[in-house]
Nucleic acid binder design. Structure first.
Lengths: 111, 111
DNA sequence: GAACTAATTCTAGATTTGTCGAAATAGCAT
DNA sequence: ATGCTATTTCGACAAATCTAGAATTAGTTC
């Protein structure tokens, strides 16, 4: 049972790495159906195992989703989760006092 | 010498910890002049040395600023940096995405 | 089944992070 | 200077992270 704060922290931490930020950027600018891991690997020029590790971190955090297509795995960004994350930052920072918790963000319904 | 990506990653990583997120929230909701470390410590109920470590992480990342007032140190949030960070996510990392659902309008401009 | 490709998982080592008690520092008062 | 308070820095340790070569799994094709 991970709370809202823990979930936001996990996602922010997942974003908090230069390589993962670069991966996300590539994924975002790739096709909507998702970018194959192999293409990310050749473009970013990092070992496949290292890339896979970072992709797993992003996927575990819910920031990207993965779908198999033959032998290739396509990764695509989850903009809803990304949006919910930046929303969280500002709602947490700018909304009223601690005794006034905000309602759960409607755009963050990732199981 | 640190590039934009590295800086954004450092800041996101600094936010990516439940305790630091809680600290930031307290700081944001405290007085505009800044919240004394001691008050944060008593409210969050964590050892002073642990708190100090997390505050240093946030300050090093530029997310909070510190000012001395007598024997107490007051920490306050740097909303400009926070704002720039969420802007970075949408403008420099996730811009151009096919499914980009219009970047969020920040709800906090208390400057 | 064998061969080939795509990607992950295993394994291991180096580095970093998180935690917190103890010691040190900074400022203010007496 | 002495004492007092607020906060940081030091030191040590466990745990997590990052990296990447080697081995493995998943899928396709012949």
């Amino acid at each position: 049972m991970t709370g809202r704060v823990e979930q936001a922290a996990e996602r922010l931490k997942a974003l908090g790495h230069p390589v993962r930020l670069a991966i996300l950027r590539r994924v975002v600018q790739g096709p909507e159906a998702g970018t194959p891991a192999g293409e990310l690997q050749s473009r970013l020029d990092i070992p496949a195992s290292t890339l896979s590790h970072h992709l797993a971190t992003l996927a575990d955090a819910g920031l990207v989703q993965v779908a198999r297509e033959g032998t290739t795995l396509r990764y695509r960004a989850d903009f809803g989760v990304l949006h919910a994350l930046t929303d969280y930052i500002w709602q947490d920072c700018c909304a009223g006092g601690a005794a006034d918790p905000l309602p759960p963000s409607p755009c963050c319904d990732r199981d």
